[in-house]
Design a binder for these strands. Structure first.
Length: 587
DNA sequence: GCCGTTTTCGGCCCGACTGTTTTCAGTCG
């Protein structure tokens, strides 16, 4: 079971309790139990480590929000595939109601009422039957429903079908940047910023949230709702509004605030939720109360035009949004010991690239020439670039032929080196075979400055075998970088399993580097492992894995991951000057 | 049901928006 499935199950239990939460006496106790299930679901959904892994290691209660009771339930789930207690809780409820919870605007109570009225007992047909009821005008006749709510449900059902669950960070970024550019054209918009998980630069984004500072809120909202790429407006109030973007059905929210209170708005809606809850606990201890408007002390409200003064008022350093996950950043900020995070401008070169060099390659070739890649690197202001490709296919070439192909390519790069005006390194991304051997013979490896080694096949090995496989390949002196170390593809594939403690120890000891791959669907290493690696003394590289010249610009998303993993400039090898880098890579 | 540099008991963040209401419940973030 994946984290997402477990989170969904917990939310179903929460919804079941919500519906059953009747009678004034039971209400208080249950309210907090409901919240506890939701909190646990949030934690699990946002956890970068797999809950199942934690269970195997006996560390379920390390998850914030999972205590003895839930750990027991999860243990039963992993052992037997079901949870008896949960089955009892959901027993007398219509089965179809839980499907309805995924529809925008339908919560537990509404889902229950609708599934009760329309006898939605079958989860598979529940959404379809609900749509039929809406189309035939039956919903508006129910008590506490009307024409508007029927229309809303119908619209939500229609956009539900096209809405992807979460979008990748670069997609959300480009949507947000376009909306921001549009909002900046509004004369009443004094500042425009990203909010939420987007501002925290998380790998996947639910909604795009935007903040605007203005004294003319209504004008800003009016401008917002005239954005040209709206599929549907969901809400429009005095200070906030929300629409569904034509692209991917992404929901875009806007919040406005006057400039004197703008800092509190930014802080509040950047989150994360857990970060804010922790901040409020600290505030309560000081007799203060936090909100999106500022800090309340008794009856008076202290206003903040920017975040720096907001955090200062709580006795701490300003915390970069990427760190706001309640993962120790508040404690560090109180002690004024936050790290100075790496900046995009610290990057001096890209080490993982692909070109259209003409050979039968083991995987997809790039689309731009060696020259074009080097030229783009110069434009980005880099001091060096490693020109790579996948190794020649071992099923199409003999070993001898592979070596001679690499020789030919090396000659071409050497020629380019003398004319290009940038330092160029010769490299390849080399497949790690199932037995840990590299797919290029030693005589071929000798001609490279270094090799990136990656797993592209047979990902189902056990954790132990996979670790042996990687470390065997990594032992070759030319193997310096492990490419996309977990092999995950966001929203498509979980990564394979590795014994990270062992990998980290090996890298730290032998001067090997782990990659933060900036491809949108990879962002691999994931942020949490970045932080663990750094704690273990491992050095990392940030690479784009670009298959064309334009993709070299994806670097910023890799830097985002590094920052979320608390990385400083010193932790990232390709922030080194050419002189220091070339010395390091040849060790 | 979870959690702990004031607590193993007694707390648990705060507010906007909408629709169907004549003052509020449900949903969302």
């Amino acid at each position: 079971m994946t984290n997402l499935e477990i989170a969904k199950l917990l939310r179903q239990i929460s919804a079941a309790y919500e519906v059953k939460n009747e009678g004034p006496l039971r209400r208080e106790a249950s309210r907090f139990r409901i919240r506890a299930y939701d909190n646990a679901a949030d934690s699990i959904e946002h956890s970068t480590s797999e809950v199942k892994d934690l269970w195997e290691q006996g560390h379920l209660e390390d998850i914030h929000g999972v205590g003895a009771s839930l750990a027991g339930h999860l243990d039963e789930l992993f052992k037997t595939g079901k949870i008896t207690h949960f089955e009892q809780v959901t027993k007398n409820l219509p089965n179809g109601m839980f499907e309805l919870l995924d529809v925008q605007g339908i919560g537990p109570k509404t889902a229950y009422k609708l599934s009760q009225e329309f006898k939605l007992d079958n989860p598979k047909t529940a959404l379809k039957k609900l749509q039929q009821a809406a189309v035939s005008g039956k919903i508006r006749k129910l008590e506490n429903f009307g024409q508007e709510s029927e229309k809303d449900i119908l619209q939500a059902l229609q956009s539900f079908k096209v809405k992807d669950t979460r979008v990748l960070l670069p997609t959300a970024t480009s949507i947000a940047e376009d909306v921001i550019k549009y909002m900046q054209q509004c004369p009443d918009a004094l500042s425009v910023d990203m909010l939420g998980s987007l501002r925290r630069r998380a790998a996947t984004i639910g909604d795009v949230d935007i903040a605007v500072a203005s004294t003319q809120s209504q004008q800003v909202i009016n401008h917002f709702t005239k954005y040209p790429h709206i599929r549907q407006i969901l809400a429009q109030g005095k200070n906030t509004a929300r629409f569904i973007h034509k692209q991917g059905g992404v929901q875009v929210d806007i919040k406005t605030q006057t400039p004197d209170k703008y800092g509190a708005l930014l802080q509040h809606f950047t989150g994360s939720k857990n970060h804010n809850v922790h901040l409020r606990e600290i505030a309560i201890q000081k007799g203060l109360s936090l909100s999106e408007y500022g800090i309340k002390k008794g009856d008076s409200l202290i206003k903040f035009s920017n975040e720096e003064v907001f955090y200062k008022a709580l006795g701490m350093q300003w915390i970069p949004p990427e760190l706001r996950e309640d993962a120790g950043e508040i404690e560090a900020a109180l002690k004024h010991q936050l790290p100075k995070l790496i900046e995009p401008t610290d990057i001096k070169g890209d080490l993982h690239t692909h070109t259209n060099y003409d050979w039968i390659s083991s995987h997809d070739r790039g689309t731009d020439s060696l020259e074009a890649m080097a030229k783009q690197a110069i434009e980005l202001g880099y001091e060096y670039i490693a020109l790579g490709d996948h190794n020649p296919s071992i099923s199409s070439y003999t070993k001898t032929k592979i070596v001679s192909e690499i020789s030919k390519r090396s000659e071409q790069i050497d020629h380019l080196k003398s004319t290009s005006g940038i330092n160029i390194l010769k490299t390849l991304e080399i497949d790690i075979q199932t037995d840990g051997k590299l797919s290029v013979p030693d005589a071929g490896l000798e001609q490279l400055d270094f090799a990136i080694i990656s797993i592209h096949s047979v990902m189902s090995l056990s954790k132990n075998d996979m670790t042996k496989r990687v470390l065997a390949a990594f032992s070759h002196p030319k193997a310096k970088i492990l490419g996309h170390p977990t092999g995950r593809l966001l929203g498509k594939r979980e990564g394979y399993e590795l014994d990270w403690d062992q990998v980290f120890e090996f890298c730290a000891k032998h001067n090997k580097f782990l990659e933060i791959n900036a491809q949108p669907s990879r962002l691999d290493l994931p942020d949490i492992l970045v932080r663990d690696a750094i704690k273990a003394g491992v050095k990392l590289v940030i690479d784009t894995d670009a298959h064309n010249a334009a993709s070299l610009q994806l670097m910023r998303f890799g830097v985002d991951v590094a920052r979320r993993g608390w990385a400083t400039k010193a932790d990232i090898v390709n922030t080194l000057s050419w002189e220091d880098f070339s010395a390091t890579i040849k060790i």
